[in-house]
């Protein structure tokens, strides 16, 4: 079945067969990244604009490398929303860029739903590279790819997501995607960082990591923003680390083949200890490698529309 979507806005609207299609494509494109000459002419003559309204060196670099390895011409526009007086600048900017006939917009924005506001108004494809607290589809797909590489499957796995669920677009996209692929999800974090009615997304909710770590096949550790302390959400990062930080001690009760993932960048010693981040269970660098492959697949597939 050909891939028909113009845009990749979120995992919520993707069907299982579409995710399978993307993951298959990513696996076959991954090999290009190991060649001596890491470039194929697939997207030659196509223009990809990276429109980043929130700083993110990692995701932008990953998308940029992906596009360049497919021979697309890429341009990056990085603006911080804090420097804008009002939001209309964003829509104006896109309108302007639109008249230069790009093929794909890769959009990162601090406001949830911002790429959705664009998708309906442009001929170009829109790939959501993370919007506010809403979705981060490419991250969820690279997480699925990484889990499958290590576990051979997604169906029937127990996946534990630990940390700041409330503010995490990664958590939301992972929950949508992994649930559809047949995994069972537990989310764990302090009550102040669990969004209301999160159980309605079909996940088990847990307040104490000890209770769910022993069952987990996969542990996804989320980044904790330092400013959560000032927002009365946490008394201190120290106390957070004591109760929710993932360290070797906590993993003693985990399955021997558990894998630990993190979307990066890591606050070492807060949500994840170096003894785990750099330890045998960590697959964090595989996630980074797969990120490029997944993004190549997304760029390729939307340009087939």
């Amino acid at each position: 079945m050909p891939f028909k979507r113009k845009d990749i806005l979120g995992i919520r609207e993707l069907e299982v067969h579409e995710m399978e299609h993307i993951l298959e494509m990513a696996s076959s494109l991954k090999e290009i990244n190991t060649r001596a000459i890491k470039k194929v002419p697939t997207l030659r003559g196509k223009t990809v604009i990276h429109l980043f309204y929130e700083p993110s060196t990692r995701t932008r670099t990953s998308f940029d490398i992906a596009a360049k390895r497919l021979s697309a011409d890429t341009f990056s526009i990085t603006t911080s929303t804090s420097s804008m007086v009002k939001g209309e600048t964003f829509l104006d900017t896109v309108k302007n860029l639109e008249s230069m006939k790009p093929d794909i917009f890769v959009i990162r924005h601090s406001a949830s739903g911002a790429p959705h506001r664009i998708a309906g108004r442009t001929e170009a494809s829109v790939i959501n590279a993370g919007d506010g607290m809403h979705e981060h589809p490419s991250q969820a797909l690279l997480d699925m790819m990484t889990i499958r590489e290590h576990k051979g499957r997604l169906d029937g796995l127990n996946v534990l997501i630990v940390g700041d669920i409330a503010h995490s677009r990664v958590a939301r996209s992972d929950i949508w995607g992994l649930t559809k692929m047949g995994a069972r999800i537990a989310v764990c974090g302090p009550t102040t960082l669990l969004p209301s009615d999160i159980d309605q997304m079909g996940v088990q909710v847990c307040l104490h990591p000890e209770e769910v770590i022993p069952d987990a096949d996969v542990i996804i550790v989320l980044r904790l923003q330092k400013e959560r302390q000032q927002q009365m959400l946490l008394p201190s990062l120290r106390e957070y680390a004591v109760y929710y930080g993932i360290n070797a001690e906590r993993l003693k009760r985990a399955k021997p083949d558990v894998i630990v993932m993190h979307p990066g960048p890591i606050n070492r010693g807060v949500e994840l200890n170096p003894d785990v981040a750099d330890g045998p269970h960590s697959v964090i660098l595989d996630q980074v490698t797969n990120g490029v492959a997944v993004r190549m697949a997304l760029l390729y597939l939307v340009s087939q529309k």
């Binding site: 506010g132 607290m133 309605q200």
Partner: peptide
């Protein structure tokens, strides 16, 4: 509104 939909959309809720 704070609830299931705000959680799904990642928009800050008003309880």
């Amino acid at each position: 509104n704070e609830g299931t939909v705000s959680t799904m959309l990642g928009l800050r809720g008003i309880p």
